[in-house]
């Protein structure tokens, strides 16, 4: 079976110029140069850990994902063709590893997406008109607490919607890259992303509209 890293390499876009340093490092890695492996882990490890923390929200799982990502990459070095940066290649491998981990988790009950989308009257007006958002949110919530609440709300999204939101809005992959990683069409990614944003909006709305006292 084709590995994650091998599939990702074949999906890379072709930049105009190959990054020379990465090509040289890749040659050393393929030759089994121990110092090259250490160099790569030290230089890219922090970035991969940040990605994994964002997607998994748990330090132990994030570190496991980093380790799996590097090992997957090392096993597939022949598939790295030097047309993109090693860090870009590793980033996408890490996202794939994190997606697999997210899918294997036993999840608490999720919200139904339909409950989080706006409803309309027959004439096309919103059934419940939207209220203005207080720009600051609840003044009783500290920034760090607000961030934790937002993370918890993202976690409440149904998995297929959370995945698209994470890849497009957080990891900033483009529509085509996201479609490729999730095995969807670009049109389906766009529709799902819009619904995911709408659902997150619905989950956050009480924080920003019920505190205008």
């Amino acid at each position: 079976m084709e590995s994650t890293a091998a599939r990702i390499s074949q999906a890379e876009p072709v930049p105009s110029q190959p990054p020379c340093d990465d090509s040289a490092l890749a040659v050393r890695l393929r030759a089994g140069d121990e110092a090259a492996f250490e160099e790569l882990v030290r230089s890219a490890g922090g970035r991969l850990l940040a990605v994994s923390r964002r997607m998994l929200g748990n330090e132990d799982d994030a570190q496991d994902a980093v380790q799996e990502s590097f090992l997957s990459a090392f096993r597939s070095l022949e598939a790295f063709d030097g047309r993109s940066q090693l860090t870009t290649w590793l980033h996408r491998i890490a996202i794939n590893v994190c997606l697999m981990k997210l899918r294997s988790r036993r999840r608490k009950p999720e919200r139904q997406i339909g409950d989080l989308l706006p409803e309309f009257l027959e004439d096309g007006h919103q059934r419940n008109p939207s209220r203005p958002w207080n720009p600051e949110g609840d003044p009783g919530i500290e920034t760090s607490e607000l961030r934790a609440i937002v993370r918890a709300r993202i976690d409440e999204l149904p998995a297929p919607y959370r995945e698209v939101l994470l890849l497009r809005d957080i990891e900033e992959l483009d529509t085509e890259q996201t479609a490729e990683m999730l095995g969807m069409t670009p049109a389906a990614v766009k529709t799902r992303l819009h619904r995911a944003r709408q659902a997150l909006r619905a989950l956050l709305e009480p924080l920003f509209t019920e505190v205008q006292r």
């Binding site: 940040a50 923390r53 919103q126 008109p129 961030r147 937002v150 957080i170 909006r201």
Partner: peptide, 29 residues
């Protein structure tokens, strides 16, 4: 209001998860 909330939700989502970005600047443990 709907559009404003949609935009703010996108920004809040990014900000909430960018907490983890400090690690990007650090070496892995």
């Amino acid at each position: 209001s709907y559009l404003d909330g949609y935009r703010k939700s996108m920004m809040l989502g990014k900000a909430a998860l960018r907490d983890y970005d400090d690690a990007r600047l650090e070496s892995a443990p």
